[in-house]
Amino acid sequence: MAVCVAVIGKDNSPLYIGGIGNDSGSDNELSRQWLVHTALDALEERLTTTGNGAAGANANAARTDMRDLYLGLLYSTDTHKIYGYVTNTRIKLVLVTHSTSPSGSNIRDAEVRAALRRLHALYADAVCNPFHLPGDPINSQKFDKQVKNLMLNNV
């Protein structure tokens, strides 16, 4: 269901972007990158509004619990929905799904939350590699495989 998953570093540069699905038309990897990139705006907005505790336009979407790393739906387009998650070290995880699943069932928030949590765990595993330099893009094939798997199965 998820078509794209991105790990974005503290400085908002992409550490990992992985996508699956057809590479045709508007659904190619590049267009997903635009989605992920713009999602950062919404994500940062979310972080600052929750940080200030200001209930603004996103009052209903505001995180009730500051400790909840899952940020929920960041924004949606006609075709995609973009969810966000931020770790305590400000590593941003972004998950892009189709607006509807091919099976028709609506994407449940809980599923996305679970997927992002799992992605967080995968990321943590990946950066635990002593040869990985924090802040560098993740090139681990294993991570890539696991993330692709996650995208296919879980959501």
Binding site: D11, N12, S13, P14, I17, E29, L30, Q33, W34, H37
Partner: peptide
């Protein structure tokens, strides 16, 4: 902005 933030694919595009 893409270059600054390291979005190389986007910058290339």
């Amino acid at each position: 902005s893409y270059e600054e933030q390291g979005w190389k694919d986007l910058a290339a595009q």
